[in-house]
Design a protein around this nucleic acid. Sequence first.
DNA 1: GACTCATAGATGTATATACATCTAGTATGG
DNA 2: CCATACTAGATGTATATACATCTATGAGTC
Lengths: 153, 153
Amino acid sequence: MAHQVATSESERRLPVLPCACANIRRAARAVTRLYNHEMRSQKIEITQFTILMALERAGEISQGKLGKLLALDSTTLTRMLVPLRKRGWIQEKEGEDRRFRIIRLTTAGRMKLEQGLPHWKRAQDRLQGVLGEQTMNQLGQLLAQVTAIFEDS
Amino acid sequence: MAHQVATSESERRLPVLPCACANIRRAARAVTRLYNHEMRSQKIEITQFTILMALERAGEISQGKLGKLLALDSTTLTRMLVPLRKRGWIQEKEGEDRRFRIIRLTTAGRMKLEQGLPHWKRAQDRLQGVLGEQTMNQLGQLLAQVTAIFEDS
DNA sequence: GACTCATAGATGTATATACATCTAGTATGG
DNA sequence: CCATACTAGATGTATATACATCTATGAGTC
């Protein structure tokens, strides 16, 4: 009783879902798996690597501003930063205003970033290999536009 | 074409990040917030609504196949289905093969879906209002293509 | 039929994510 | 200076998500 083994064709191509949110979330899961797969040997998740990359570019930055940059709730960052701190990749100091926590990369964090970069690049190249450079850039623009839809309101 | 408002805020425009995974995850978060915002009064999350929509289209389906359709790990579905079952929106029966769990919408689930649809539509329309119909469709195609990158391997 | 392998899901563990609410500092009008 | 509003995060709670590993079942071989 083979439960309808679909041919390679129909299995291969996932249908576009009617819900745009479902489509983007589904793609995000797939891409996350790809990147995590390449990063696995580095013992770092792509979500964590993303934060290291953001910090490298931003330098010292408050939790709130980092959240805005990544469209992440600032209280979500409170939790996400815990494992990064535990592993010694970031540290915090207080700003003049004692409400702020200023985050920055540690030396260990910068090293982790450097070591992970080739692996990250492999994932990125793999995706770009499928899409092509132009489509890849187009996708980036499109997604940035999409992200802007709900910055506040 | 005037959908880009170019508000006075210089903060308004989030930069495209160098990592494609970060871009897509960031956009997914923003879009998820938008949809959840519209669904809130319905007491259902867009992720859960997505599953109801998928079940409506697929009819009776095994957990594994549903996972493939949504590019979701099947064991993740094990957990995601719990609240849906608890709320009575889905039910399960055994297939001929006792390893399978066949999932289907209940009447309550179908009702929930119907009632939620206008709210879902508002979110979808709001997104489409920003992107335009053509770009919206293009994005769907692009994301389906992206999703295919890591179906197995 | 016992042995072996494959398949579908369940469970343990860790992280990601958000919202409501709370706390601690800061700014400000009187 | 105080009362009040505002801001940045922290905490409680719930869900989303994956991988490694385990269990139950079925399939194929001899």
